[in-house]
Design a protein around this nucleic acid. Structure first.
Length: 185
DNA sequence: GCGTCGATGGCA
DNA sequence: GCCATCGACGCG
């Protein structure tokens, strides 16, 4: 398995979100290594996408989304969950991919069937906001031997986003039992 | 197996 | 006053 390089993340968010289904997420923290296969993602395609945080413009929080691709965008939601995203596309385009669900690998048991549960189990927190994902701490691997059955659907929890709320920008592996609860449609 | 609701904090 | 969520409830 090869580490995913910056050129991959520099694709637009839709291509990156689709391409990350089946990839392996690796987090090395406090002497442990957690691995999980990504089975669900969502694309946030830029400031014109009313569901995207970048639609609020450049603020302290969204600044990272407008930076170079391949960096982590981690933010707090509902006062208690960290959401893990990957900045995508050209620098300044305000795109990102939300990692929504995964399956634990390597004999490790965990429930990763939702974006909040995933970050909690993998110990990904806001302290990793801005981290370069081409480094050795938090990164992704492409698995040439795994072939997901990728389907697309509406994004979850974005009913406020007007004409963008029904866009088919969520991708999931129909072979996986670990898609988030809201996920199977 | 559903729908509803409360927890909880950063942000604009 | 929102939220890119989750788990606990109450139902019958």
């Amino acid at each position: 398995m090869n580490k995913i390089r910056r050129a991959f993340y520099q694709q637009n968010a839709v291509a990156a979100a689709r391409g990350l289904i089946g990839a392996v997420l690796v987090h090395r923290v406090r002497g442990k290594e957690y691995r999980a296969r990504i089975v669900e993602t969502e694309a946030y395609v830029g400031p014109h996408d009313l569901a995207s945080h970048s639609s609020k413009g450049r603020t302290k929080r969204t600044e990272i989304m407008f930076g170079p691709a391949g960096h982590a965008y981690v933010y707090l939601i509902y006062g208690m969950y960290d959401m893990f995203n990957i900045v995508a596309g050209r620098t300044g385009s305000g795109q990102a991919v939300l990692i929504r669900a995964a399956e634990p690998l390597g004999g490790w048991k965990a429930d990763l069937t939702g974006p909040g549960k995933l970050t909690r189990a993998l110990k990904i927190t806001r302290s990793s906001n801005g981290l370069d994902l081409t480094g050795g701490r938090l990164f992704l691997l492409r698995d040439p031997n795994y072939h997901p059955r990728t389907k697309k659907a509406k994004r979850v929890g974005v009913d406020y986003a007007k004409e963008w709320k029904d866009a088919l920008l969520r991708f999931f592996d129909a072979k996986s039992p670990s898609v988030s609860k809201q996920g199977l449609r």
